[in-house]
Amino acid sequence: MSFDNAYESLVEGHEEKHWAFGTGFTHALSGVDRAISSTVDRDDLAAYCLMLGDDALVYAQRLAEWCAKAPELEEDVALANIALDLLGQARMLLSRAGEIQGTDEDALAYLRDSSEFRNVHLAEIDCGPGPGGDFATTMARLLVFSAWRLALLHRLTGSADPVLAAVAAKGVKELTYHRDHAAQWVLRLAGGTDYSRERMVAGLAVVWPHLDELFTAHPIEHRLAEAGVAVDPAELRSEVDSVLDTVLGAAGLTRPDVASVPGGGRGGVHTEAMAPLLAEMQVVARALPGGVW
């Protein structure tokens, strides 16, 4: 058979059509052993995949908000590319979670409410282009988020779960240049004019209160870390601190002196920024339930 376009072939053979077409993950993940070890709690594994998948999905949505609003065309492209990498990671992780929970990536992305999302607050807060920040704040978040996620995925390449290990190994390559991109912008803004430096300093102060949450383990992360599946985020702190200190040092900046704010994203407690973000991300799927293209 032949198809007029790629989308027809994707629908072909699927009884149900989807909002976003499948990654091929649930049907054809050969070469990666998808069996779950009997020592691993399936619900815990699904919840952990949701945590890491939601971090990527929600942050990708935030990055996409910059498209056509960045200070230069190249940056529109860069932020959209970074968002696409994270979206790819999210799809694989949500597919894995969905497979275990008997649902799919589309339902997980489009039909959950705020309290069902498990992402850290750093992924969801408004760092611009909305009123919550600007390009410098956005680069501050990109630096912290990618330094943290890179350290996490780097360790996760040794996970006892083969799917997590494979997703992590691929993600490490991507997070490496996300982190470099942010670091280079922090240096450029801090080393620019007094005004750009002031904005960079202010941007770091916006994201810094959310740092502690990144290193606070949820009980599920604890349990899975003991099983060799997950990474205890507390173990990432010294590596991430060292990367951030290196960048700040090279930029002639110091750590912002700001108090930490309570986290809770891993438990479904979110900031006031989350509902509007989801409203935009889910509007089409919610307005036209079951609609297909």
């Binding site: 032949s2 994707l10 990654t23 091929g24 993940l29 050969s30 070469g31 494979a166 190994a169 390559k173």
Partner: peptide, 30 residues
């Protein structure tokens, strides 16, 4: 990736293969 799957499926079908499966692997990373 989806386009690649579609193109492979189409070309193999045209060549006379009736049962074509395209699988995706993640490991080792490209």
């Amino acid at each position: 990736l989806d386009e690649m799957r579609s193109d492979l499926h189409e070309k193999l079908t045209e060549a006379g293969y009736r049962d074509v499966e395209i699988r995706t692997v993640l490991h080792p990373a490209w």
